[in-house]
Simulated scan of single mutants.
Amino acid sequence: MLNYDKVKHWPIEDVTQTWTERDSILYALGLGVGGDPMDANQLRFTYEKDLQAVPTLAAAIAWPKSWMRNPETGIDYLKLVHGEQDTRLFKPMPASGTVTSRTRVSRICDKGVGKGAIVELLRDIIDTASGERIAETRQISFLRGDGGFSEVSGVTDAPPAGLPGVPERAPDAEFELTSPAQAALIYRLSGDSNPLHADPEIAAKAGFSKPILHGLATYGMAAFAAISCLAAGDARRLKRVAARFTAPVYPGETLRFQFWKGDNGRWHLLARIDARDVIVLNNGLIILS
C-alpha cells in the first residue's frame, strides 16, 4: 500500500543535464517535425540555421531516476498511468545548454478504495550557469492500484484543480501532424527508453497491438502544432501548454489538433485521431504571449 509519508517526503535527486543542438533536433524529429523537409517552419526546429527548440523539451530532459519503482514507496508501479502534463515557460527554451532539475512531490490524493490515487510532481528546470528558472513542469500520475491508503495513514491531500474543458462549439483553428512509423524509436533516444514503446512482445503483454508512442511525444506534438498554427512558428511566444492524456497514440497515425480562442492569449486544445475516432488529448490549455 502507498506510504503517504515516505512518498510525500521522498528525497528526489537533483539532475544536471547538458544538451546540444543535435539533441534539440532529435527531439523534434521524434515528434514528427521535419516530415516535410521543404517546409520552412519545420526546418526552424530541425536544421541548425536559426534553430529553435520545441519548448516542451523542458518536460523531457533532466529526469530523476524512476524512484516510484522502489518497494519502500508502496506504489503499485505496474498500474501507474501518466494522466496530465503541464509546462510553464518563464524564458525561451534554449536549443542547447545545461540545466539542473529539482523535483518535489507536491500532492498525494486518495480517491478511495478501488478508485486509485493521484500523485502530483513539480519540477523546476533551472539554468545551471545563471541559476534562473527556465520552466516548471507539473506531472500528474494516476495510481490505479493505490486507492484507500488514507484509511491507514489517516491523511490525504486535496485533489488538484482540474484543467478546463473545451468549448462546445466549432474550433477556431486546426492543425494536422502525422507521427512517423518510427517515431517512438526516434523519440526514445531523447531519454525515455521504456520498452513498451519499442518491443512488440512487451506491448502485447500490456494489451496493445503494437508499441505505442510516448505520451510526452504526443504532448510535444501539441506544442509544435500550437506554435505553428497560432504563433507563426515563433517558439518564444509559447508560455504554457497543459493537457490530459485520454488515449494512446500509435506511431504512424495522423493527429488533428483543434484550438478554441479564449481571453488574454489563452487557447483551449483537443487532439483527435479521425481514423480511429478517438480523442487522445483533452482539457488542453495553451497560453501565448
Rank of each mutant, 00 (worst) to 15 (best):
N3S: 11
H9K: 12
P11K: 08
D14Q: 13
V15D: 00
T16V: 11
T18N: 00
W19L: 04
E21N: 14
R22H: 14
R22S: 15
I25K: 07
L26D: 08
L26Q: 13
A28Q: 02
L29N: 10
V33P: 00
R44I: 02
Y47M: 04
K49V: 13
K49G: 10
A53P: 01
L57D: 01
A58G: 06
A62H: 04
P64R: 03
K65V: 15
S66Q: 13
N70K: 13
D76F: 12
L78V: 14
L80E: 09
H82I: 08
H82L: 11
G83A: 12
G83L: 08
G83T: 06
D86A: 04
D86E: 11
D86I: 06
T87H: 05
R88M: 12
R88S: 15
K91Y: 13
G97F: 05
S101A: 15
S101T: 15
V105A: 09
V105K: 08
S106I: 11
R107H: 12
G114S: 07
K115A: 12
E120T: 14
L121P: 05
L122Y: 11
D127A: 02
D127V: 03
T128N: 10
A129W: 05
S130K: 00
G131N: 03
R133L: 12
A135I: 02
I140Y: 08
F142K: 00
R144F: 09
G148Q: 03
E151G: 13
S153I: 06
G154K: 06
L163T: 05
P164R: 01
R169C: 09
P171A: 07
D172Y: 01
P180L: 09
A184D: 05
L185D: 12
I186E: 06
S190N: 12
D192W: 03
L196W: 09
I202A: 09
A204W: 11
A204L: 14
G207S: 09
F208D: 05
S209H: 13
S209E: 15
L213M: 15
H214G: 04
H214N: 10
G215N: 07
Y219D: 00
M221P: 07
A223H: 06
F224L: 02
A225Y: 05
S228P: 00
A232N: 15
G233K: 02
K239T: 09
R240S: 01
V241Q: 09
P251W: 10
E253H: 01
L255A: 13
R256F: 03
F257M: 06
K261G: 08
G262T: 07
G262P: 08
N264C: 13
R266N: 14
L269D: 02
L270A: 15
A271D: 01
R276G: 04
R276N: 10
R276T: 14
V278G: 01
I279V: 15
V280Y: 01
L288Q: 01
L288N: 03
S289H: 12
